[in-house]
Amino acid sequence: MERETESRVYGWEPGEQAGRTVGREYAELVGGLLDGQLLDVTGWTAADRAGGVLLIADLGLYGPGGRADYAPDDDDAAGGLFRWRGDTA
């Protein structure tokens, strides 16, 4: 598969996937510990996206097992940005 060089995709280890894969759809994570990473949202419905996501962030406020709360950015009409809303246990 053809790849573009850019931010790491969330859930992949460094070096496993350098960035976007052609034919996949991504949201960029903005803020928090995962800032700049890409979240693969291929196949997500509008309702899935609207609900946001809790992503494992072991180095966050709650340590191992903690989650980072990301949701679509209200100022991004295209829906390509998920903004950090805080950490949770």
Rank of each mutant, 00 (worst) to 15 (best):
E13I: 06
E13Y: 08
P14R: 06
P14F: 01
G15V: 13
G15R: 11
G15L: 09
E16D: 15
E16A: 15
E16N: 13
Q17K: 11
Q17W: 06
Q17N: 10
Q17C: 14
A18Y: 08
A18Q: 13
A18S: 13
A18G: 12
G19H: 06
G19N: 08
G19M: 09
T21D: 13
T21K: 14
T21Y: 06
V22A: 15
V22D: 14
G23P: 04
R24V: 01
E25S: 08
E25V: 11
E25L: 08
Y26I: 06
A27I: 02
A27N: 05
A27D: 03
A27S: 11
A27G: 05
E28F: 03
E28H: 10
E28P: 02
E28S: 12
E28G: 05
L29D: 02
L29F: 02
V30L: 11
V30H: 07
V30A: 10
G31W: 01
G32E: 04
G32C: 07
L33K: 14
L33C: 12
L33N: 15
L34R: 06
L34M: 13
L34E: 07
L34A: 07
G36V: 12
G36S: 11
G36C: 14
Q37W: 00
Q37K: 06
Q37N: 04
L38H: 03
L38E: 02
L38G: 01
D40P: 00
T42K: 12
T42M: 11
T42N: 10
T42E: 13
T42Y: 01
G43C: 09
G43Q: 09
G43A: 10
W44F: 00
W44E: 03
T45W: 01
T45Q: 05
T45S: 15
A47T: 09
A47E: 15
D48T: 03
D48V: 04
R49M: 08
A50S: 14
G51H: 11
G52S: 05
G52N: 00
G52W: 00
G52K: 02
L55Y: 01
L55H: 03
L55D: 02
I56Y: 08
I56V: 14
A57N: 08
A57C: 14
D58Q: 07
D58Y: 03
L59R: 09
L59W: 04
L59P: 04
L61A: 09
Y62R: 08
Y62S: 06
Y62W: 08
P64V: 10
P64Q: 10
P64E: 14
G65P: 09
G65H: 07
G65C: 09
G66P: 02
A68E: 07
A68S: 14
A68T: 08
D69N: 11
D69V: 11
Y70R: 09
Y70W: 04
A71G: 14
P72C: 09
P72K: 10
D73N: 11
D73M: 02
D73F: 00
D73A: 08
D73Y: 00
D74T: 12
D75Y: 08
D75S: 14
D76M: 02
D76K: 02
A77S: 13
A77Y: 05
A78D: 15
G80K: 03
G80Y: 03
L81A: 02
F82C: 01
F82T: 00
F82G: 01
R83P: 01
R83S: 06
W84L: 06
R85I: 03
R85Q: 14
R85P: 05
R85K: 15
G86N: 09
D87G: 05
